[in-house]
């Protein structure tokens, strides 16, 4: 028992550290890639080719003065960044990032929690992440924040349904909600669920981009209309928490997509963990690529797209999958 707890704690600490570091250098990668795509140079002053930029950003954020606007709901205003940050960090606990390895004579499963309802757990935690944004928008007592918060809550409710439905096809085919088992079923490349559920993958990815408030669905923080949306009034590290939360959500989406659709850590020649990282990074790169390529949707287009296109398509996908699975 004690040994189990100890191993789990060590795994959790390592994974969360890696996740936070990934988030930090995701900001650098995003700025660099965007700059390249727009014929700019990007950050290049701090460290070799600007590699220390995230450290500089962190130090700056930590030493900034924290301003709380007058008329803000103080307690909720201070709580909101944590409500956005914590659900972003939780789902990684269910993601298997490698096969069993033997370390110091013990067999260690490279997943923090091998849980039977892992997929549902991820969806449940994701459904809680809207509170941080809504609270931030409402408690700051600013019109831009409030509008950003309202937009985001409507958007996240709409696209959450799409996410859940787009994954039902996989659950139908795999017959389990355990992420470790789902990876186990994709042991050859043509068994990857991206080939058996192509529409499901597209729907999941589109919905996930909307759910993480990224371009082209980044309406809650549309600069030209809302300054910065729900976190307009935030400063210092509380602003930083929203930022890290957003990137952690992106990493979660990338790892979930890797696990469910791209065969997880499975792959030839290279060690499993490396395969997992390669696939996740590829998904993250597509994220940034899309941001550089597509203009922002209008808000009514976004809602119509969610309810009139995504959800009917997802329902049709479930029906067809169920039929094929029956035959």
């Amino acid at each position: 028992m004690l040994e189990f707890i100890l191993i789990t704690i060590i795994k959790a600490v390592v994974v969360v550290t890696v996740l936070l570091l990934t988030c930090a250098w995701m900001t650098y990668a995003e700025r660099k890639i965007l700059a390249r795509m727009q014929s700019r140079i990007g950050p290049n002053v701090a460290g070799w080719k600007g590699l220390l930029q995230p450290v500089a950003d962190l130090v700056k954020l930590l030493f900034k003065e924290e301003v709380i606007p007058g008329g803000a709901q103080r307690a909720l205003y201070l709580l909101a960044p944590l409500l956005a940050f914590i659900p972003a960090m939780l789902p990684i606990a269910m993601i298997p990032f490698g096969n069993k390895i033997t370390l110091f004579g013990r067999e260690i499963n490279l997943v923090i929690a091998n849980y039977d309802n892992g997929l549902l757990f991820i969806l449940a935690v994701a459904s809680l992440s809207v509170y941080g944004i809504v609270m931030a928008g409402w408690s700051a007592n600013s019109k831009y924040s409030l509008l950003g918060g309202l937009r985001s809550s409507a958007q996240m409710i709409s696209y959450e349904i799409g996410i859940g439905m787009s994954l039902i096809g996989i659950v139908l085919l795999a017959g389990t909600l355990n992420l470790v088992d789902i990876v186990g079923q994709q042991n050859v490349w043509y068994k990857w669920f991206i080939f058996r559920q192509p529409i499901g993958f597209l729907l999941y990815f589109v919905c996930a981009i909307a759910e993480t408030n990224r371009a082209p669905f980044d309406l809650p923080e549309a600069e030209s209309e809302l300054v910065a949306g729900y976190f307009t009034e935030y400063s210092s590290m509380r602003f930083g928490l929203f930022f890290v939360g957003e990137y952690a959500n992106m990493v979660t989406v990338a790892t979930v997509a890797t696990t469910l659709f791209l065969g997880g850590w499975q792959g030839p020649f290279l060690p499993p963990v490396l395969w997992f990282v390669i696939k996740a990074v590829a998904v993250l790169f597509i994220y940034i690529w899309i941001r550089a390529s597509l203009p922002r949707f209008r808000y009514d287009q976004l809602m119509k797209f969610g309810w009139y296109v995504i959800i009917p398509l997802a329902l049709a996908n479930i029906l067809v999958t169920a039929l094929i699975d029956l035959l």
């Binding site: 039977d116 309802n117 449940a124 809207v130 509170y131 309202l150 809550s153 409710i157």
Partner: peptide, 24 residues
């Protein structure tokens, strides 16, 4: 466990967000 997760998804994650929305 299933009821527990449904409780979070349906009540905490969906219905209460709608409540919040209306109140705001």
């Amino acid at each position: 466990a299933f009821i527990a997760i449904l409780q979070v998804i349906v009540y905490a994650g969906a219905i209460m967000v709608l409540f919040l929305f209306v109140i705001m």
